[in-house]
């Protein structure tokens, strides 16, 4: 199976804190991989490294054969855990921004998604609720035909109804020619869509396996196993 993302021996320190301790991880084409762990386990640090947002790390990262940077950014559609679309943008401006910079962006698809959610395109991002902002961001990110989608805590700050929408949007727009790496600490909602689960604890991978296999071998759901593994951490 073709590897979309390859990470080998990744280490990252913040001052004296060793945030990521020699992680190796592969993401294969067509898979939805969950990077699961409590806050502070290193999920966002790994994602930022892939996105080239952190510069001083040890180890190797390759995205479709390229190192993090300009070329890799053409292949990755990234949803960070913060509201990264400038809040003074109107929704229409955000669409035009993505269309200007990403060759694989499908503006029509984004417009259709936004219309289906009744999000007014002439409104400024800052005038929208937090949930609506999340939906706008996700619609833009999922309207690209990227090789790798990286979604950092996509359901972390939204209500249960919005979570349902976000998960169905991810599934509906998933490009089988690509892969998704998705981080979260809210397992129950996201479990049904995951192919592979990676448990992160204190900067190390403690489990990396097929979700079906985990359920069969452990005899419990991913959510139950997560609570078991992290009961003293969360």
């Amino acid at each position: 199976m073709e590897k979309i993302l390859e990470i080998n021996g990744l280490h990252k320190n913040y001052g004296k804190t060793h945030a990521v301790k020699g992680i190796s991880l592969d993401v294969e084409k067509g898979k939805i991989v969950g990077l699961l762990g409590p806050n502070g386990s290193g999920k966002t640090t790994i994602i930022k490294t892939i996105m080239g947002l952190l510069s001083d790390y040890d180890g190797n990262v390759a995205i479709a054969g390229t190192t993090p940077g300009v070329a890799a950014n053409e292949n990755i559609s990234y949803l960070p855990d913060v509201s990264h679309i400038p809040n003074w943008f109107k929704v229409n401006q955000a669409i035009s921004f993505f269309a200007d910079f990403y060759k694989d962006f499908d503006a029509k698809r984004a417009e259709n998604m936004l219309d289906s959610m009744n999000i007014p395109r002439d409104k400024k991002i800052k005038a929208l609720s937090r949930g609506m902002q999340e939906k706008v961001q996700l619609s833009l990110v999922m309207s690209r035909r990227a090789k790798l989608y990286i979604l950092d805590e996509p359901i972390g700050a939204v209500d249960p109804a919005s979570r349902e929408f976000i998960i169905s949007t991810i599934l509906k727009n998933f490009n089988e020619e690509g892969a998704i790496l998705l981080s979260t600490h809210i397992i129950a909602d996201i479990e049904p869509i995951l192919d592979v689960a990676v448990f992160l604890k204190e900067g190390q991978i403690v489990l990396n396996d097929d979700v079906e296999k985990i359920r069969e071998e452990k005899g419990m759901s991913l959510d139950q196993l997560f609570r078991e593994v992290f009961k003293n951490v969360v």
């Binding site: 996105m51 080239g52 947002l53 053409e74 913060v82 509201s83 990264h84 910079f101």
Partner: peptide
């Protein structure tokens, strides 16, 4: 600011 997450991940040198 948070916009940096957009700027730094653009496919632009």
């Amino acid at each position: 600011s948070h916009s940096g997450y957009l700027q730094f991940t653009l496919p632009v040198r």
